[in-house]
Design a binder for these strands. Structure first.
Length: 577
DNA sequence: GCCGTTTTCGGCCCGACTGTTTTCAGTCG
């Protein structure tokens, strides 16, 4: 995928143009970069299929930039970019990562002190050469030094699941502060993005200043980036930043809409407002100087002729068009989930795992009608996978537990499955005569993940053709930020899933989220059914369902696309057929 | 450089905060 490489080049070019104080072009290049970053399809493939014309279909990309893309695909370089780099041989994208450093300051420091990279920057800052410069000062120099320190410890983006517990804590702390009337989390957290840069809170307060004072004095504050009358920004010791905005109550909806983003969605909605002779800002929708909406998001969208849409789909990726056609999906909700079918137990003998009984307790607490126990199987030695014989024994055990539930008139059922391993040749490690005795079978790849594309695709398709296999777990195998997806012809996988009636899993583990939103949307469009599972290895992990739901919603999935919204009898029928 | 429910030309999302040049440019989201 050349998308990210090209995005980087266009971002770079935007900054060079910014330094030259060229009007409007930096914005155009930046938009092209953002568009490419968000683009899921390989730009090289798009070019191969449809040439320059197809490239120009990409939002924010016109003739000139598509020429640059073509040039890069052919030569690996963009001449204009090379020219800029020669004129100003500095590591711009590193330098602007320092908080407070932008293109203009970087250029000034190069011209005056010859600063080319972060190392040079640190050297001149430590030697107090920055403060005396025209346009700089003591504080700027100090901030640069501190920014450099933070950068050294920077861990990049955070996994949504890693920071959510902290976010919920801080939310409660703010909510319980007596000055706070209304509070919501906004930004990419509200949109359920799988990784988070920083966290945004939005508040209506009796006295904004008191909220600001309270906020910047949290125990966990490491640095206050800024604090004004309505806006403050801090870094907490966990390593991420939190922004807080206080807005008037009458603007709460428009502010929430604005700070939820995405940026692209906002630009699109503002354009629509402009088209109707209105102005949309975080303060409301205005006709001239008259405010016509702002208190709630519904009101704001309504004022510009759109229905409210769920934060998870606000990516300017077709939702506006769908809204205009009154064709928005009714997204699946957590409360519609009736059970979790990818749950492990302590049957392999691993002590940290919970018993089947404990897993059931938790599932009942969550209001589920059923749970599926699907332990690993024998090939996976490290997970103490069960043999066929052990699975049969487990089957008897679960039968007895189910009888107990019936005796106690508990409307809850345990389904019995397993998570078999798809071996290199597409067969699985448990014999069919055992598999057919189970309520359902999950199969997943847990080995040889670096197979070439064709072999890996064939391997999965062969597994899907096994009539005993109902579900493919974590179908693409990615670990966010750590391991790429398998080489896979996903279109073929979808065709085969459709043909064989195999269900693809949406694995809720914050480290996986596999399928991801993009692939979920593709599966939905093909009519492939999915299931949202947690892959729990301990009972608390059953709570991870919310992240799978978030991803499903980002993929526009509706109740009918997700089979664990079905009651147990219908689910069992589904497996039998 | 991009784009079009007003436009193929003439606009481009827009407001908050900081630090410094003391009236506003630079940066950020």
């Amino acid at each position: 995928m050349k998308n990210q490489e090209l995005a980087k080049i266009f971002n770079d070019m935007a900054r060079f143009l910014e330094m030259e104080a060229v009007a409007f072009k930096p914005y155009a290049y930046q938009r092209a970069a953002i568009s490419l970053e968000a683009l899921q399809e390989d730009v090289g493939d798009i070019y191969l299929k449809g040439g320059i014309k197809a490239l120009m279909e990409i939002p924010g990309i016109g003739k000139a930039i598509s020429d640059h893309i073509e040039e890069y695909l052919k030569t690996g370089k963009v001449k204009q970019h090379e020219k800029f780099k020669k004129q100003l041989p500095i590591e711009l994208d590193d330098l602007v990562r320092v908080e407070g450093m932008g293109a203009k300051k970087a250029r000034a420091l190069y011209q005056k002190l010859g600063v080319k990279n972060l190392k040079d920057l640190e050297k001149v800052a430590k030697a107090h050469k920055i403060a005396p410069l025209f346009g700089f000062g003591e504080k700027t120099e100090k901030n640069i030094l501190q920014g450099l320190e933070f950068l050294k410890r920077d861990k990049g983006r955070f996994l949504l699941g890693d920071i959510m517990p902290r976010v919920k804590e801080i939310y409660e702390k703010l909510e319980n502060f007596n000055q706070v009337k209304k509070i919501s989390v906004a930004g990419s957290v509200r949109r359920q993005k799988e990784t988070i840069g920083d966290v945004d809170f939005l508040i209506v307060a009796k006295n904004p200043k008191k909220v600001m004072d309270f906020f910047v004095k949290f125990d966990s504050v490491e640095k206050v980036w800024g604090k004004g009358g309505t806006k403050a920004s801090i870094r907490i010791k966990d390593g991420f930043d939190i922004d807080l905005r206080v807005v008037p109550e009458r603007s709460y909806g428009s502010a929430l809409q604005y700070f939820t983003g995405s940026k692209e969605h906002n630009i699109a909605t503002r354009r629509i407002a402009i088209g109707k002779g209105l102005k949309l800002s975080e303060y409301g929708v205005f006709r001239g100087s008259k405010m016509i909406a702002g208190k709630t998001e519904e009101e704001v969208y309504g004022a510009i002729g759109l229905p409210w849409m769920a934060p998870e789909i606000r990516e300017n990726d077709g939702e506006i068009e769908a809204a205009l056609k009154e064709n928005l999906p009714k997204l699946v909700e957590l409360k519609e989930i009736k059970g979790d079918l990818h749950c492990h137990s302590n049957w392999g003998g691993i002590e940290e795992r919970d018993s089947i009984e404990k897993m059931c307790e938790k599932a009942i607490e969550l209001g589920y009608e059923y749970i599926g126990i699907s332990d690993h199987t024998e090939f996976l030695k490290i997970e103490q996978g069960l043999t066929g014989k052990q699975l049969l024994k487990q089957k008897e055990y679960i039968k007895k537990l189910n009888e107990k539930f019936r005796e106690r008139n508990t409307n809850f059922k345990i389904l019995h499955g397993c998570e078999t391993n798809i071996l290199n040749d597409g067969s699985v490690d448990i014999k069919d005569e055992i598999l057919e005795k189970l309520d359902y079978v999950i199969a997943g790849v847990h080995s040889s993940m670096k197979m070439p594309k064709k072999e890996m695709t064939d391997r999965l398709i062969k597994a899907m053709k096994n009539s005993n296999i109902d579900i493919i777990s974590h179908p693409t195998g990615r670990l966010i930020g750590r391991r790429d997806e398998y080489q896979l012809d996903f279109d073929k996988i979808l065709d085969s899933a459709k043909e064989t009636g195999t269900i693809l899993e949406i694995n809720s583990s914050p480290y996986r989220l596999d399928l991801n939103g993009f692939n979920i949307r593709r599966a939905k469009e093909r009519g492939v059914k999915m299931i949202i599972n947690t892959d729990s290895h301990r009972k608390e992990q059953l709570n991870l369902m919310e992240y799978g739901i978030g991803q499903a919603r980002r993929g526009w999935a509706e109740k009918a696309d997700i089979i664990n919204t079905l009651p147990v009898e219908e689910l069992m029928d589904f497996f039998k057929n």
